[in-house]
Design a protein around this nucleic acid. Structure first.
Length: 912
RNA sequence: GCCCGGGUGGCGGAAUUGGUAGACGCGCUGGACUCAAAAUCCAGUGAUGGCAACAUCGUGCGGGUUCGAUUCCCGCCCCGGGUACCA
């Protein structure tokens, strides 16, 4: 291939006069050609060559929806593709795979409507996604493609589930261990095998139990807590048809790993914000459990508090409506009132709860408890502002120093005793109110009314920190309580009433025993069913799978298979491990390969997975680590969240949105096509209803894949949210066209020595592009390449060597064009294969420095001086300048600051 | 309410161990080419004043530290995202 061929490729378009689309460089032909070349040569196939340094780069794999790729997908994919092409040219063995998180509700919904098997729909969507991704010239190793719905994949998802089931958390060793190593207390053993089974089941990381769960009447399925949004709607379907139900469910004991998950964050190169969100989600708090005696009952009521120091201010107690002692605590006269309250609380939909969040309700049980620190009798109430799922489900209320308790106490006229004097921390006016119990103070202060000489405790005058320590010590000594750590993190609800998910390898036997399939029996495949509708009771569609459903063991015992399936998280929890060895059918992955490739060096995806996916994955990974199945404690060393790509949208003065096809632009203003009303341009998420969705296929068709790639990188920093504009695409297209035009013209390339100026800009570009790729700052890398190209146009000619070097820098960003130009210069092989060009700082050295000379901080003129002058010499040169004389006339020079190589600042004062 | 981001030209955005604010791109203006238009190429483009040289102002607002602040400190305002009775 030579210059001549290139010109033939380009010639028709140079003279095409009818085309309204700019076609000055023939991207269609170039891109098709090189994509074919990469495929034919398996350019991106990854080999397990353990002698090379490795780089494992992972994109969050997509759910292949029927709508196809949107422009948000290529954003992260292009970024990782650039990094990977760069790393390859730096000599790394790069693993960059792609696959499909293909279980999910839309395919099942479609099956319910049309009877089409979800596998069929899924296959079609995957094919479309793959075609679209390949059209972008992304360098994935397609031989490693995986699909979570493929039985050869979910076989191992099921296998990991059995590992979770057969693991318990040894708190003393702080690690998971095989259930076979669980020490069973002698008295349990003595009670027989059923007792042993129950004891063991309580320790497993996966368990089957009654759980109060969110149930969506529209989806006819259980949803996780976190899928139910604040406003009481279901994230997946958007309706508010969600309610609480008690159902038998599979749960995972992720809280056992709370501490490990928290500690593990410290060593990770993740955005601080994401780490903070995970910390908040885990929600560690330290405090104490305190036992309160109940008057007239031989029972204690245990509470958890983070403020044991405020025990002197506890004036009443509250138990959650679901608390097991409620019935016992309640006196006969109050039975009916309490019962009614509990019934009402249970009936409350989530919506009511949210609405009532501002007003607290409760009812007196008739019972009193004894405050252990001062012997005071305080009433016990039931109220649903106390949650059963956190702490002990009961609290001591300190209304003077807790907003929630204060609000409740005011509503029901309960006593409010101030024990922390905010003196000095607030206004005297507010302080007076606080001291009287008319206002709440939750900050630090000095204790008052906090002594009981009879039992030898006095914290008056101490600060919060000291108080907490002293009271906790006293509680422990008196045997009334102990320091405790609590986490917000709850058990993970791990089952769904759906067809299109991984079946649990579980059999429920008629005698109540639950067993798991042997490894040899995996994968347990999904049965063919006639209809995909959930059962009327909310049971999964699998409950209709007659033959599949029932099993009989060798002894004739009958059993029923688990009809729930796993949630979508399951497949995505470990896919990064399968990419390492995707075709292995004897184990999930070969140990040696895992040892080489893990951890993932760079993980790129949307911030929406900041908590759930990343926390669940880390949890599974830590269990696998404890069992010796993986070699690293954490799966993802570096995480990067790409920002969302938004689009312009339009709204009327009253704020109602107008679809983009109803809008006309006139002189920078926007008007409604029909009403003529002037509209406001806003930035919004792309959506069908706003008709502002950009389809990558259209962009590739019009401007080419290299332009799409470059634009998505050039539009702004990768982690920022930013709006899409077609004019912006034209801008980068223009750059590529200028590159193609300049370097495609043989007359522009010369042999011999390169000019100093060109070498300088070339090497600046090598350095900046390399550094910026490492820092994920692709926008500024591209801008530097534009600077270089602009320089070439000015210079008129550059050497072939310069051109070749530039193609290598351009290659990670616009690989098709770079390959084309590389071949055009008569080079063989792929432009990405030679090493990344070596930056030579010698070319950047200057003979002169242009010093900005400022007076009192204001730059007045520039002074060109030779490099390497001392501060003193620069100062003298500056003082001798005529311009300095002009600016200092009539003034006194107070001081001169010289930063060699940077700036001169002369401080002046009026002459006196 | 709390937590995390972020406010820089007409627009997307550059620049931080404190040292020439506005790189690069879009848009706009003018010129070249053309019968003409498109495309392309060249030049200009923060605001205000001035024919110009140049001057003054300018990184959300108000203070502070400093020879010098987009950058550091204090107090506000606005926007985006996350979260919600976790005792």
């Amino acid at each position: 291939m030579g210059f001549r061929d290139f010109n033939r490729n380009f010639a028709p378009s140079f003279y095409s006069i009818n085309s309204s689309i700019p076609m000055d460089y023939n991207f269609k032909e170039i891109e098709a050609k090189w994509q074919q070349y990469w495929a034919d040569n398996k350019s991106f196939k990854t080999y397990d060559d353990f002698s090379k340094p490795k780089f494992y780069c992972l994109d969050m794999f997509p759910y292949p929806s029927g709508a196809g790729l949107h422009v948000g997908h290529p954003e992260g994919y292009t970024a990782t593709d650039i990094v990977c092409r760069y790393k390859r040219s730096k000599g790394f063995n790069v693993l960059h795979p792609m696959g499909w998180d293909a279980f999910g509700l839309p395919a099942e919904q479609y099956a319910i409507q049309t009877g089409t098997h979800p596998a069929e729909t899924t296959q079609k969507n995957c094919d479309n996604f793959r075609r679209q991704i390949q059209a972008l010239g992304l360098g994935y190793d397609w031989d490693r493609e995986i699909n979570t719905t493929d039985p050869s994949y979910f076989k191992w998802t099921q296998w990991i589930f059995t590992k979770l089931y057969n693991t318990w958390f040894d708190a003393s060793a702080e690690k998971g261990r095989l259930i076979s190593e669980l020490p069973v207390p002698a008295e349990i053993k003595a009670a027989g095998p059923i007792a042993v089974r129950e004891y063991t089941d309580q320790k497993r990381l996966a368990y089957y139990g009654e759980a109060q769960v969110w149930y969506c009447r529209t989806c006819k399925t259980v949803c996780a807590n976190e899928e139910v949004l604040n406003d009481g709607s279901h994230e997946k379907c958007g309706t508010k048809e969600v309610e609480r139900r008690f159902l038998k469910q599979w749960m995972l004991r992720i809280p056992h790993y709370a501490e490990r998950l928290l500690e593990g964050l410290d060593g990770l190169d993740w955005p601080e914000g994401v780490k903070e969100m995970q910390r908040n989600w885990i929600g560690r708090s330290t405090g104490a459990e305190v036992d309160f005696a109940l008057a007239g009952l031989n029972k204690n009521l245990r509470v958890y508090t983070t403020r044991p120091d405020t025990l002197f201010g506890a004036t009443y107690m509250v138990v959650a409506p679901e608390h097991e002692l409620v019935a016992e605590i309640t006196t006969p006269e109050q039975q009916k009132a309490v019962k009614d309250y509990i019934t009402n609380a249970a009936l409350k939909s989530d919506l009511d709860r949210t609405d009532l969040a501002k007003g607290k309700t409760g009812v007196f049980t008739g019972r009193y408890a004894i405050n252990p620190i001062n012997g005071a009798q305080i009433p016990v109430w039931v109220a649903d502002y106390v949650l059963m799922g956190y702490g002990t489900g009961a609290i001591m209320a300190v209304p003077a120093h807790d907003d929630r308790d204060f609000e409740f106490a005011q509503t029901y006229n309960l006593p409010i005793v101030c024990i922390l004097d905010p003196a000095g921390n607030t206004s005297e006016e507010l302080r007076a109110k606080i001291l009287k119990g008319d206002a709440c103070w939750t900050e630090d202060g000095g204790y008052i009314n906090s002594a009981n000489p009879a039992i030898g405790i006095d914290i008056n005058g101490l600060t919060k920190e000291q108080g907490i320590r002293q009271v906790t010590e006293w509680l422990e000594k008196a045997g009334l309580g102990k320091a405790t750590v609590n986490y917000k993190l709850r058990d993970w609800l791990f089952s769904r009433q759906r067809y299109w998910g991984e079946p649990f390898p579980v059999i429920h036997w008629e005698d109540g025993e639950v067993t798991l399939l042997n490894d040899a029996e995996l994968p347990l495949q999904l049965p063919e069913v006639e209809k995909y509708q959930p059962g009327e009771t909310g049971e999964s569609p699998l409950s209709n799978a007659g033959k599949w459903l029932t099993v009989t063991d060798a002894n004739g015992r009958k059993g029923r298979r688990e009809t729930n399936t796993m949630p979508q998280w399951a497949g995505s929890c470990w896919y990064y491990l399968r990419f390492i060895d995707p075709k292995n059918d004897t184990e999930p992955f070969a140990k040696a390969k895992e040892n080489y490739w893990m951890p993932v060096d760079l993980y790129v995806g949307g911030a929406e997975h900041a908590v759930l996916h990343l926390l669940y994955s880390r949890f599974w990974h830590k269990v696998l680590f404890d069992l010796g199945i993986v070699s690293t404690n954490e799966p993802f060393q570096k995480l990067f969240n790409q920002g969302m790509i938004l689009a312009f949208a339009y709204e009327t003065a009253s704020g109602s949105k107008v679809p983009s096809d109803m809008v006309t632009e006139k002189e920078g203003k926007y008007f409604h096509n029909e009403t003529g009303e002037e509209l406001r341009q806003i930035v919004a998420k792309m959506s069908k209803s706003l008709k502002n969705v950009v389809n990558p296929d259209d962009v590739v068709e019009k401007f080419g894949a290299d332009s799409l790639r470059l634009y998505e990188m050039f539009i702004g920093p990768l982690d920022a949210t930013k709006p899409w504009t077609e004019n912006g695409v034209k801008g980068v297209y223009n750059f590529l066209r200028r590159v193609a035009t300049f370097f495609g013209e043989p007359g522009n390339l010369t042999e011999g020595a390169e000019s100093k100026e060109t070498l300088k800009i070339l090497h600046q570009t090598i350095k900046k592009a390399g550094d910026d790729i490492e820092d994920m700052k692709f926008n500024t890398a591209i801008s530097q390449m534009m600077v270089f190209t602009n320089h070439c146009y000015k210079a008129g000619k550059v050497t072939t060597e310069t051109a070749n070097t530039f193609y290598q820098v351009l290659a990670p960003f616009a690989p098709h064009l770079a390959e084309e130009l590389w071949a055009l210069n008569g080079n063989s092989g792929s432009v990405g294969i030679p090493a990344w060009p070596v930056f030579n700082p010698a070319f950047l050295t200057e003979d002169v420095v242009e010093y900005p000379v400022s007076f009192n901080g204001k730059v007045r003129f520039k002074l060109e001086l030779p490099v390497g002058l001392t501060a003193k010499e620069v100062e003298e040169a500056a003082l001798q300048s005529d311009m300095t004389k002009k600016w200092t006339e009539g003034m006194t020079i107070v001081k001169i600051i010289v930063v060699p190589g940077k700036i001169v600042n002369i401080v002046l004062r009026d002459k006196v």
